[in-house]
Design a binder for these strands. Structure first.
Length: 580
RNA sequence: GGAGUCGUGGUGUAGCCCGGUUAACACGCCCGCCUGUCACGCGGGAGACCGCGGGUUCGAAUCCCGUCGACUCCGCCA
């Protein structure tokens, strides 16, 4: 290769040197007797200048158009005082063209690189190879690479082995829908793409691998969101002989290493909270703790209320909760109505608002409140505050108050208190009852171990059993999830039985794992972290599509490759598939 | 499965409410001029039957119905 340097790095230290640069014509300015080209590669841009005295080169330079690929030999020169471009990192220098060669031409493109903003995502994805020429995408993909490398480095240094697990595996119709792959050799049989390497990594623990990690692609055939793609990448990890706190320590170490590597050293501690407390305080299992707005309990205030709405709720075992927002009293009626509607959409029957304005309490339900209640509310508020009160059966109440909290943060345009706020959510219930199916289901992951002292409760009151499950939440995003697993076959089978899996079914679906467990599997645990999500957060992107080179659209299709698509009749026949 | 927003030259938008000229503007593209530009400038030109199908109407980019696609959200996502 003849290239001597990248465009974006050329600076004063290269003055007087001759360079061979290759790249794309980002823009050209032909002044008639003088010609400028901004040459771009993934490191940045540098200005080329061509004088007419260099006749042959000038002729070629005049023929280039947007996005032509050229190779240039030239002298790095200082720009004249007035010609320095302060908006350009390479703006103090320019490269005087000696020779120029067109390596490839380019047709008129659907959009311009960098200058065209607000291109529809549809167009961007259809021409992703052009979109990826943009600085934003180069920056994001570079950062993603760094995150991946940092994770690899961290785990490797701690003695973890990176082991690949199969992508063609078997379907386990738990949780998300599987992507299926028909087998040619076995008529009527299918592989499934893994939703996670869960079973394999636990099996690796049974093998005595002790410490495993993988940058693993996971597949889920579910509807998409800004933070969900049909295939996503997990930093997947599992280790033996660990407690929950060991896992926290290891993962915190990894997160810190990643953040430091990308230039965001962390000082903020990782908080830990019980799932039940998180739900009660924030109405969400992934609250954004950069904002306050805790949900308050008003059961005491209204214990003896004459307001029928509240007294009925309390009598039926419900609860009354509130959120108080500073400087919210100025909120317009329409904004309050919007928030009320949002609460209703999330299951609330209504919301009561209370304002403290000029030392006086105003409220949509003022006439129902006693003097004592008004004073109690007043004592909880500061001048200019607004309080929203909701009441319902506790779980429902927390849920819509949580939705309200999220919306309030948006509506009031609250500024986050810190850049990053980490939260471990732990002590999830192991099981949740599904009334429609008259069975228990894993609250998170069917292989999670119950808290040891709760094991007897599996026989008496399964809903009370706490698990060794945890989530790591960052700025309101569920970043990672993991647990200490069951390493005892009998216990695992007991839990599967509560989920109404017969021994036969369990053996059929999870046989590999169950068999491995009874062959001397060590205690173990681990986690999976969303690589796309952590990268998106670090890039300041709202959608993980911006950190994935070739993502899918909301209908799980790829505009670039036009997948999914039809296949040949011959292919179908080989796979024993008939399409109606 | 459901809700909302959007769809107009290559790209991004205006026009749509309140139907009626050759569908406007910017960038890109083509031609010409220009020796210090950097969103270069100036002059000229090409390029869209307004996502698709149907309906209302003398007449539809505009109103109505359907459909397809994109995005966001709910359901779903162990």
């Amino acid at each position: 290769m003849k290239r001597t340097n990248y465009c974006g790095v050329i600076n004063k230290t290269h003055l007087g040197s001759e360079q061979i640069l290759c790249g794309w014509v980002h823009s050209y300015r032909n002044l008639g007797g003088l010609l400028f080209i901004d040459l771009r590669d993934r490191t940045g841009k540098v200005q080329l200048v061509c004088n007419p005295e260099n006749k042959e080169a000038f002729e070629t330079a005049a023929s280039v158009r947007m996005e032509y690929v050229i190779e240039v030999q030239g002298l790095v020169s200082a720009r004249a005082e007035g010609a320095v471009n302060k908006n350009m990192p390479t703006g103090e220098v320019e490269v005087v063209i000696k020779n120029i060669k067109v390596l490839n031409t380019c047709i008129a493109l659907p959009f311009e690189i960098e200058t065209d903003k607000n291109i529809s995502e549809e167009t961007r994805l259809k021409y992703r190879y052009l979109d990826l020429r943009n600085e934003r995408m180069i920056k994001n993909l570079t950062l993603r690479h760094k995150v991946t490398q940092a994770a690899r480095e961290y785990f490797s240094d701690l003695g973890f082995l990176e082991i690949e697990t199969p992508v063609l595996t078997r379907s386990t119709p738990e949780g998300a829908r599987d992507y299926l792959v028909p087998s040619r050799v076995h008529e009527g049989k299918f592989y499934a793409l893994p939703q996670s390497p869960q079973m394999f990594k636990q099996t690796l623990m049974a093998s005595g691998i002790d410490r495993y990690f993988q940058i693993a692609r996971c597949f889920r055939d579910e509807d998409l969101r800004a933070d969900r793609q049909p295939e996503h990448t997990q930093i997947d990890m599992e280790m033996s002989f660990v407690t929950l706190q060991d896992l926290f320590n290891i993962i915190e170490g990894m997160v810190k290493h990643i953040f430091t590597t990308v230039g965001e050293p962390l000082e903020t501690p990782f908080l830990q909270m019980q799932y039940s407390d998180v739900m009660e305080k924030y109405g969400s299992d992934k609250p954004d703790l950069r904002f306050g707005l805790e949900i308050q309990n008003l059961d005491g205030v209204f214990a003896k209320t004459a307001f029928k709405v509240f007294s009925d709720i309390l009598a039926s075992g419900g609860t009354i909760r509130a959120i108080t927002a500073e400087n919210g009293a100025a909120m317009a009626r329409s904004a309050i109505d919007k928030l009320t509607q949002l609460a209703k959409d999330n299951g609330a029957k209504g919301l009561v608002w209370v304002k403290l304005k000029d030392g006086k309490v105003e409220s949509s339900a003022l006439k129902f409140f006693s003097e004592e209640e008004i004073n109690a509310l007043k004592a909880m508020m500061k001048e200019g505050d607004i309080m929203f009160i909701g009441s319902d059966e506790p779980k429902k109440c927390f849920s819509f108050m949580g939705a309200l909290r999220k919306e309030l943060i948006k509506t009031l345009g609250l500024k986050p208190s810190t850049k990053w706020k980490f939260l471990w959510v732990k002590n999830f219930p192991l099981l949740e009852f599904v009334p429609e199916e008259n069975r228990w289901d894993a609250a998170h992951n069917p292989f999670t171990a119950p808290v040891e002292e709760d094991i007897p409760l599996l026989d008496t009151d399964p809903g009370k059993v706490m698990s060794n499950q945890y989530d790591l939440v960052l700025n309101g995003v569920e970043l990672a999830s993991g647990s200490v697993r069951n390493h005892n076959r009998a216990l695992q089978e007991k839990i599967l039985a509560l989920m109404k899996h017969s021994k036969e079914q369990a053996a059929l679906r999870f046989g590999m794992l169950l068999n491995a467990l009874e062959c001397g599997a060590p205690p173990h645990g681990g986690m999976g972290m969303g690589l796309d999500r952590i990268t998106a957060l670090l890039c300041g992107e709202d959608s993980i599509k911006e950190v994935i080179a070739f993502p899918k659209t909301t209908t799980a299709s790829c505009p670039l490759t036009e997948s999914p698509n039809v296949v040949d009749e011959v292919q179908l026949k080989e796979l024993h598939i008939k399409i109606d």
